[in-house]
Design a protein around this nucleic acid. Structure first.
Lengths: 354, 354
DNA sequence: CGTAGGTATGAAAGCGCATTCACTCTAGGG
DNA sequence: CCCTAGAGTGAATGCGCTTTCATACCTACG
């Protein structure tokens, strides 16, 4: 690749000034048709591609939105099964991209990788007009700094207390409500009395909210209300889910009649573990997840779970960003709570498939 | 958002020159520890975020790879079903992102929208170090121009003759071989003798190759070999698939015993149409697709199809781009052909689910 | 005690484009 | 026939950063 041609080359070749070349691209109507043709022709001959960087620098806007998401590569997900590898971050990506496209923006995506003083966010932040961040992907402090400079919307994350990110726009799903309804279904409709909740050691606000929903359902139904999750795992992976399932099966007080996992990944891991142990789902024990990832429909038995509207979340995020950028919206931070729906499937004893 | 702070602000505040500020980020070790601390502190106080544009301009590289994909929004895909909305472009995105991340790149994605002298590709091309293009997303001529300036890899597209894009790196899947094997399975293993192939009006190389595979299988098995697809639809959508199914059912010569569609979307549409007409699949007629999109597993009966390794394709694309950029690879264009696998599922009369 | 060889830093020159301002050149209106 | 509006174009400046190149300052050594 030899040095790429610039406006100067095009200008020289077509016998105009660089200002005119620029105008041909930014504001074609302000250039006489004949001139425009000449410029375009020269550009084509030269293989001229305007530099997005120079453009962004000069006009201080890039036409790009960003998304930072966690590096959720669950190694247990079958490597040869593309479907299973699709997590909900993919759905958010699609939602954002689709909406961004409608507004003429492209989307820059990057998963959290650490490194140097120059972290992921900084890299993304420096190249976009605004961006969304999935919860707990980015150090609070850094976000704090960046959000002073460009619009940021938090996805599915906190909004509580000490986070100090209260001034950011924020979209979450009805975690508590969803888990409550799912749990209610298990207790009231399936008559289960000893459900066990599996959460995580490091308390994410989402997982917290889910546990609250679980407890509320227990209380409402007159079932014993635990103070703590029955098990707390390190990461929400299939491996950890399998481990949790083992712990619950061997629990001194007897096996619970339902394993309520804080996410689908763990629930799927548990399904595998239970199969290996010869424990039948849902006959011997009921298993549920949370998220509604694709994989939850593909496993057998299909997983009863709470479906989050991820594509929609991505779309809403884009809308908010665009509104902030156009100035169409300003002032108080938005706080959206998207509704969820319980998917009753085979793993709790409900019908086939759906 | 007030004017964002720049290197100048940080430099002034920490009492150094802008060169030093820059070095703190680009090459930390070349700055004395004490100085570095001062600069970093000032940067944080100011909320300094380096401008990716300025950086890209000055260093002529962005650390971003791009992907252009077609605007495949099949309106028939259930709007409320996120899973169904995931097409294979999403899998390519994931593959590319994952690999890009490993090499320290971010990914810029954009679907083809048209507009002005300033098309999609141009926008993407101007902001990335290199990019991949899904077949038929971008006007050949434009690609031609751009590819003179930065590495481009074509995905799943041509490589044949007149395309004049022969000098581009290129990854495709074994369309012909896959379709041949699928068709062979139908004929030999299921004893079908009158399969009908549904292709498209505008001949894409992929669809062409699939039809060749279909014909070859017919020839090999001694079944009548059609010169033309039984039906040619306008777009490969569910709606068109449904229409094609109708046409085939009402065909004068009698209904074929197998509908072999050029992609999954159409096959799914056909499945719905057949159900409405009371035609049983696979008992009355066998239906197959191509691609292996997620939806193909979710419909009932699950769709027999040819699975393309999309995630892998994305990964390979990234690898090639990175090699070109690092100079690790140069010279002749790469041409990769990825193997596919036939997924025998219920719609051809094979086992449950998988 | 002078000097070679680093090391830490600064000055300045772009990178490729958008944009303002000034200027030229018609086309009408008086 | 002169003056005034535009319309079309060019010159020049700056966007925020990277990168030589040069300079100042040490340290170690003869």
């Amino acid at each position: 690749m030899t040095a790429a041609p610039t406006v100067y080359d095009v200008a020289e070749r077509s016998g105009v000034s660089i200002a005119t070349v620029s105008r041909v691209y930014r504001n074609p109507d302000s250039v006489r048709a004949a001139t425009r043709e000449r410029v375009l022709a020269a550009a084509k001959e030269l293989g001229y591609v305007p530099s997005g960087n120079a453009r962004g620098l000069a006009s201080r806007s890039t036409g790009v939105l960003g998304l930072c998401f966690p590096d959720y590569a669950d190694p247990a997900a079958d490597a040869d099964d593309d479907d299973a590898a699709m997590l909900y971050s993919d759905q958010i990506i699609r939602g954002m991209e689709r909406a961004a496209r409608r507004h003429g923006y492209a989307l820059l995506i990057a998963a959290s990788l650490q490194g140097g003083p120059e972290s992921l966010v900084a890299k993304v932040a420096g190249r976009v007009d605004g961006f969304a961040v999935m919860a707990r992907t980015v150090p609070t402090e850094e976000l704090e700094v960046i959000s002073r400079r460009r619009p940021v919307v938090m996805l599915a994350g906190p909004r509580e207390g000490a986070e100090s990110l209260d001034h950011l726009d924020h979209i979450e799903v009805a975690n508590e409500e969803g888990q409550r309804e799912l749990t209610r279904h298990l207790i009231e409709d399936h008559g289960l009395r000893r459900p066990a909740y599996v959460g995580t050691a490091e308390e994410s606000p989402d997982v917290e909210a889910r546990f609250r929903g679980f407890r509320r359902a227990c209380r409402d139904a007159g079932v014993e209300v635990p103070d703590e999750p029955a098990v707390r795992v390190g990461m929400m992976t299939q491996a950890e889910g399998a481990r949790a399932a083992g712990l619950l099966c061997d629990r001194p007080g007897g096996r619970p009649d339902a394993f309520v996992f804080a996410n689908d990944q763990m629930a799927v891991g548990a399904l595998h573990a239970l199969e290996r142990r010869g424990v039948a789902v849902p006959d011997d024990v009921v298993v549920t997840g949370f998220d509604g990832i694709t994989l939850s429909r593909l496993v057998r038995p299909a997983l009863t779970t709470v479906r989050q509207p991820m594509v929609r979340m991505g779309e809403e995020a884009t809308e908010i960003l665009v509104q902030r950028l156009t100035g169409e919206r300003s002032g108080d931070p938005v706080s959206l709570m998207l509704p969820v729906s319980v998917a009753r499937r085979a793993s709790c004893g409900c019908g086939e498939g759906e």
